[in-house]
C-alpha cells in the first residue's frame, strides 16, 4: 500500500484518544509518557498535544541496551536518556514509531527497569509492520501494515512527520 496516503494526523489523534482512555481505566496509577529516541519521541510529543491529560514526557535512548552491540558497535551519536521523573510505581506509556522485531521494545523495557519498577507499561506504536522475533504486542497501534520481505518503513520528522517505505538494497 501507499503509506504516503495515510493521514498521520488522524492516526495520531486516534492514538491519543485511546491513550487517554487507557490512562482513565488505570486511574489509580500516575501516568508518564516515554518516547523512544527518535521517532517514538516525535510521536509521543505529537500525541501529548492532542491529549486531555497533562502528562510528563521522557526520552529513552536504548543504544546501551541493544542486543546487537557486539555486531554493530557504538552508534556515533548517542543522546542520553532523559527521564525527568521517578519510574517507580508509575503507569508508563511507552511510545515508538514502528514495531517490527520487538527487540527495541525489549531493550527499552530493560532500561526502564534499571530506573525503577513501573506499575504498568502500555505500549503505543504508530505502525505495526509484523515480523516479530520476540513475543511483543502493542496495546495501542495506529495502523497495521503488511510489508514484503526486504521492505522497511521509516518515519521522518519532526516537522513535518512523514512515512516512507524503502526497499532494502
Amino acid at each position: 500500500m501507499d503509506v504516503s496516503k495515510l493521514s498521520l494526523d488522524d492516526l495520531i489523534s486516534d492514538m491519543a484518544a485511546r491513550v487517554d482512555e487507557r490512562i482513565r481505566s488505570f486511574a489509580e496509577q500516575t501516568p508518564v509518557m516515554v518516547g523512544i529516541h527518535t521517532g517514538g519521541l516525535w510521536i509521543a510529543a505529537a500525541m501529548r498535544e492532542r491529549m486531555q491529560t497533562e502528562i510528563p514526557l521522557g526520552e529513552l535512548n536504548i543504544a546501551f541496551y541493544r542486543d546487537d552491540f557486539s555486531r554493530i558497535g557504538m552508534h556515533p551519536h548517542v543522546s542520553p536518556s532523559n527521564l525527568p521523573f521517578e519510574v517507580e510505581d508509575r503507569h508508563i506509556i511507552l511510545v515508538d514509531d514502528v514495531l517490527y522485531t520487538g527487540r527495541t521494545i525489549r531493550a527499552a523495557m530493560n532500561e526502564l527497569f534499571d530506573y525503577g519498577r513501573p506499575a504498568r507499561i502500555t505500549l503505543a506504536v504508530l505502525i505495526d509492520r509484523g515480523g516479530r522475533e520476540l513475543p511483543m504486542h502493542a496495546d495501542i497501534c495506529g495502523k497495521t501494515l503488511s510489508l514484503k520481505a526486504g521492505e522497511h518503513v521509516k518515519l521522518s520528522g519532526p516537522e513535518p512527520l512523514a512515512l516512507v517505505v524503502k526497499e532494502n538494497g
Binding site: 554493530i72 558497535g73 527495541t104 532494502n168
Partner: peptide, 16 residues
C-alpha cells in the same frame, strides 16, 4: 570494544 563490530549499515542502526 564496539570497534570490533562490523561496519554498521544505516538500516541495521535504525531498525531493531
Amino acid at each position: 570494544m564496539g570497534s570490533l563490530a562490523d561496519t554498521p549499515t544505516l538500516e541495521s542502526r535504525d531498525e531493531v
